[in-house]
Simulated assay, not measured.
Amino acid sequence: MVSAAENRNYSEAQIEAEAERLLAKLMHVECEASRSWNIEECREIAPLTLEINDLKKEKGAVVLAHSYVEPEIVYGVADFAGDSYMLSLKAKQSGAKSIVFSGVVFMAETAKILSPESEVVVPDRASGCSLADSLTGEQLRELKKQYPDAAVVCYINSTAEVKAECDVCVTSSNVYKIVASLPQKQILFVPDKLMAENIRVEMKKLGIDKEIVSSDGTCIVHDDFDPTIIADARGKFPGLKVVSHPECTLNITEKSDYVGSTGGMMQYVKATEAPYFMMLTECGLVERIEVEAPEKRFISGCKLCPYMKMNSLQKIRDVLIAPREDQVIELEEDLRLKALHSIDRMFEIAEGAPHQPGKGC
């Protein structure tokens, strides 16, 4: 449990009102990975969420929360919640003096790439990513020597130094469109080898002749789902819809009813009539939908990301008060501009026009 805020005194009426606000959201969360929220637990965290929200106003800060972090962050203190790139665009649009990125480090780097004038901080510098951490800029430079004629495409789940070495960055929502449109036949796609496999299959379905080569990174959440759980669940729950992410293995995506980005998965579940859903992704996304569409019923299957769960209300409060040097994201300007170029190219190709600030993907 988090402790009450130490530096401010809130009245019982303020705490009760905040607890009721929190409960109105969190009472719908029923994922097996989360606690069972009640008014007593909400009263316990209420002083902390009150303090964080006050600190944001005082410091001109916004809190960005990825859908995979704990629901008390998403619904207690976040100004924006969603996937990593949408959050970075929202932060840029807000013009905030300070950005607290409650997610993982590569996401905060993306925010810094797009908002160089803002201070960008992370609640926990150890919140890495198995995909982003699987490939360095130096390793990519060596790979590029092996494939000199390839278009170099990086998934958004990569470090700033990897983005700086790429021709174009992609998200899970626009990757197929961008890869299909590139003039080069050979595509060096990094760092996710499983998404590369899904791209290869999709290009073949579309009748597009592409040679997809990749590095060997995987997401520790999405790379190890057992496909037998799909058949078992379909047998027990007629009408079940299975939803997965293109970071999953082919033996998962090929058995799914829908494969898409974090935002796409949310939209699909909300818009689709079905008695049950199984979401083969991080449990935080299931928790978000339970809050925003409490009528939906879910079958167990999601997994936790240990890096996302390093974020907490206490760490957010502490980084707002006095960020340590290691919590502040700094990028050399030359590196930032090279990384920004790959992101700008994404918009030029995906949208057919130069990137305009505030436009999402």
Rank of each mutant, 00 (worst) to 15 (best):
N53Q: 10
N53Y: 10
N53M: 08
D54V: 00
D54E: 13
K56A: 06
K56H: 06
K56T: 07
K57F: 12
K57M: 14
K57G: 14
K57C: 10
E58K: 13
E58V: 09
E58Q: 15
E58G: 08
K59H: 15
K59C: 13
G60T: 14
G60C: 13
A61G: 09
A61F: 11
A61M: 11
V62H: 02
V62Y: 08
S67W: 12
S67V: 14
S67N: 15
V69I: 13
V69A: 09
V69N: 06
V69C: 09
E70C: 05
E70Q: 10
P71D: 05
P71M: 04
E72S: 07
V74W: 03
Y75K: 01
G76Q: 07
G76T: 08
G76D: 07
V77E: 06
V77P: 02
A78E: 06
A78S: 09
A78R: 03
A78M: 05
A78F: 08
D79K: 03
D79W: 06
F80L: 01
F80H: 05
F80K: 03
A81N: 11
A81L: 08
A81S: 15
G82Y: 01
G82Q: 00
G82W: 01
G82P: 00
G82V: 00
G82F: 00
D83G: 00
D83Q: 05
D83H: 04
D83L: 05
D83T: 04
D83S: 08
S84F: 07
S84K: 07
S84M: 08
Y85D: 09
Y85V: 11
M86E: 10
M86Y: 12
M86C: 04
L87A: 01
L87C: 01
S88P: 00
L89W: 01
K90I: 02
K90R: 11
K90A: 05
A91C: 03
A91I: 04
K92T: 11
Q93V: 12
S94H: 06
S94Y: 06
S94W: 05
G95C: 12
A96S: 13
K97P: 01
K97A: 12
K97F: 10
I99R: 02
I99M: 02
I99G: 01
V100L: 05
V100S: 06
V100R: 08
V100I: 14
V100P: 03
V100Q: 02
